[in-house]
Design a protein around this nucleic acid. Structure first.
Length: 273
DNA sequence: GTCCAGGTTTTTA
DNA sequence: TAAAAACATGGA
């Protein structure tokens, strides 16, 4: 954080980078000291809180063209939280607890790969595999930043070439994704505007993409806020607090409800309330 | 050594 | 069809 000239400071309503960048939706952000650092859409960003303010180490132009959208700063989370809170007392608590989380607008391809890797895996290892994937197959930007590998680069790799990633059985799933995407059988552009059932069906053409990974890709990669990933934690949430509810009962912002509840129960369990 | 990790595929009954 | 087991890897 040096050049004050290129700083962009904002005071967003309750947006919390700590919650947002460390809640298991993205895997290329690291915090050292008070500063978050990460790469997205070919740009690197340093970000830190200063009291109520949020300091972005970038120009106004870059903030407007990339980060405003990436951090989803124009979605009305205050209104959405009010709407969700009114639905249910537990959801109200989750909103109060985890309401600083925004659903990032990540690159669809990167999010898809990330959640293929996430299956039956833990977060430190997911981050490691993605890091090695970038080091092994990613190109460098003009500024020397390590970019996420393209589908084309991955599709032209053999299983042996992917061995250094130590992705285990997931390596063949990544290849399937890369091949179907480059062949156009899974058209990421088209998925963005598909009816959600059709979008799920299309993503699940990939060998190694089941309902949960498809749902994560839709929520975190395509910003489909009605998507509701049902993992082991969310199954506990549903059994314990919403035995008579189904994901679609949470409405158009089910995905946000899911993210808040996920964060809520995980902390809840860890701290042994 | 055993268990587990934001699941999916394959095998078995 | 539904329930187990297998799948790679590494940290606790």
């Amino acid at each position: 954080m040096s050049d004050t000239f290129s700083m962009k400071t904002i005071t967003p309503a309750l947006f919390d980078p700590d919650h947002t960048l460390d809640c298991g939706q993205s895997f290329r952000w690291e915090k050292s000291g008070d500063v978050w650092q990460g790469i997205a859409f070919g740009r690197r960003l340093c970000l830190q809180k200063q009291g109520e303010q949020l300091v972005f180490d970038c120009s106004q132009a870059e903030f407007d063209s990339i980060w405003r959208s990436y951090f989803d700063l124009d979605t009305e989370y205050v209104r959405i939280r009010q709407q969700l809170s009114a639905m249910d007392p537990v959801l109200e608590k989750a909103c109060a607890y985890a309401g600083g989380i925004h659903i990032l607008r990540q690159d669809p391809w990167e999010a898809l790969c990330s959640f293929i890797i996430s299956q039956n895996n833990n977060i430190p290892r997911i981050k490691g595999i993605i890091q090695r994937m970038c080091e092994t197959l990613g190109e460098r930007s003009a500024e020397g930043l390590l970019l996420f590998p393209t589908p084309q680069r991955l599709a032209s790799s053999s299983l042996e070439e992917l061995a250094p990633l130590r992705a285990g059985f997931r390596a063949k799933y990544l290849l399937s994704a890369a091949r179907l995407v480059t062949e156009g059988k899974v058209d990421l552009q088209a998925i963005s505007s598909m009816e959600i059932g059709k979008a799920r069906e299309t993503l699940m053409l990939i060998h190694g993409v089941g309902p949960k990974v498809a749902e994560c890709a839709l929520l975190y990669g395509f910003h489909r806020l009605e998507a509701f990933p049902m993992d082991v934690w969310m199954k506990r949430v549903m059994e314990r607090w919403f035995p008579d509810k189904k994901p679609e009962d949470f409405g158009a912002y089910a995905g946000i409800a899911q993210q808040y509840l996920f964060h809520y129960i995980r902390t809840f369990e860890e701290e042994n309330f």
